[in-house]
Amino acid sequence: MTQRLSQTWRPTAKSGLRVHAVAQDDPLATPLLAELAVEYSTRYGRTVGEVHDSLRNYPAAEFAAPDGALLVVTRDGEPVAGGAFRRYDDDTAELKRIWTAREHRRQGLGLFVLEQLETEIARRGYRRIYLTTGPRQPEAVALYLTHGYAALYDQDIPSDQIGPHPFEKYLPAPHPASDPVGARA
């Protein structure tokens, strides 16, 4: 049975977009995760089944409140992008599965998802974001480098020789008056 984590629709600054916090098995997440599996299998030479299984290897609870979230962005009810985070350590959230549906790329949705995730991560009280992306995802590397993430690898080494590309970003300390009630200590 699908369980919606939050049925609160949050209108966004981008016209027609809504952000939903959903469970990993939510129907809104299903097409995005399926397309992500196809994309990764194509880029990394693995079967779609292997990739899809690896996307589901993490327990769904890791992407649920209070320590994580899976956000899906819809436009006119259609899932167009999404991303997730989970607890990495007490002060750090780890980004996972940031994705834009193929037919909706080059519209700024990847950055929009990243900003939504960062806002939610800060709201949850994390002070640092950590992530890894693959060597065959130059558009992801560019997104992170141009939006304040520090590469934790030698950028002079060819991408395929590095393996997973780790990044981090420290979040500004929240203003005491802006801390939400119930934020993690």
Results as ranks from 00 to 15, higher is better:
residue 137 Q to H: 14
residue 94 E to I: 01
residue 59 P to D: 07
residue 57 N to R: 14
residue 177 A to N: 06
residue 61 A to S: 06
residue 135 P to N: 11
residue 127 R to L: 13
residue 71 L to V: 11
residue 52 H to D: 15
residue 7 Q to L: 12
residue 105 R to E: 09
residue 63 F to W: 11
residue 12 T to D: 13
residue 66 P to Q: 08
residue 32 L to R: 05
residue 15 S to P: 01
residue 180 P to C: 10
residue 29 A to Q: 08
residue 70 L to C: 12
residue 25 D to Y: 12
residue 87 R to W: 08
residue 141 V to E: 15
residue 5 L to V: 15
residue 24 Q to C: 08
residue 166 P to R: 05
residue 122 A to P: 04
residue 101 A to N: 03
residue 152 L to M: 14
residue 113 V to L: 08
residue 146 T to F: 02
residue 137 Q to A: 13
residue 55 L to E: 10
residue 111 L to M: 06
residue 106 R to Y: 04
residue 88 Y to Q: 11
residue 163 G to C: 07
residue 30 T to W: 06
residue 79 P to W: 00
residue 144 Y to T: 07
residue 150 A to C: 09
residue 124 R to W: 03
residue 101 A to R: 15
residue 21 A to W: 07
residue 25 D to W: 05
residue 54 S to G: 05
residue 85 F to D: 02
residue 59 P to G: 11
residue 14 K to L: 15
residue 130 Y to D: 07
residue 70 L to S: 12
residue 176 P to I: 04
residue 108 G to P: 03
residue 31 P to R: 09
residue 76 D to V: 04
residue 54 S to E: 15
residue 80 V to P: 01
residue 89 D to L: 04
residue 31 P to M: 09
residue 121 I to W: 06
residue 140 A to F: 05
residue 38 V to M: 07
residue 17 L to V: 15
residue 145 L to V: 10
residue 179 D to Y: 09
residue 20 H to R: 12
residue 142 A to L: 14
residue 1 M to S: 11
residue 33 L to R: 15
residue 103 E to Y: 00
residue 181 V to L: 12
residue 57 N to H: 04
residue 58 Y to E: 11
residue 101 A to L: 10
residue 88 Y to C: 05
residue 165 H to Y: 01
residue 173 A to Q: 10
residue 15 S to Q: 15
residue 92 T to G: 04
residue 156 D to T: 14
residue 79 P to N: 08
residue 67 D to R: 10
residue 50 E to R: 11
residue 13 A to W: 03
residue 57 N to Y: 02
residue 110 G to L: 02
residue 126 Y to F: 09
residue 67 D to M: 05
residue 169 K to V: 00
residue 47 T to G: 14
residue 29 A to M: 03
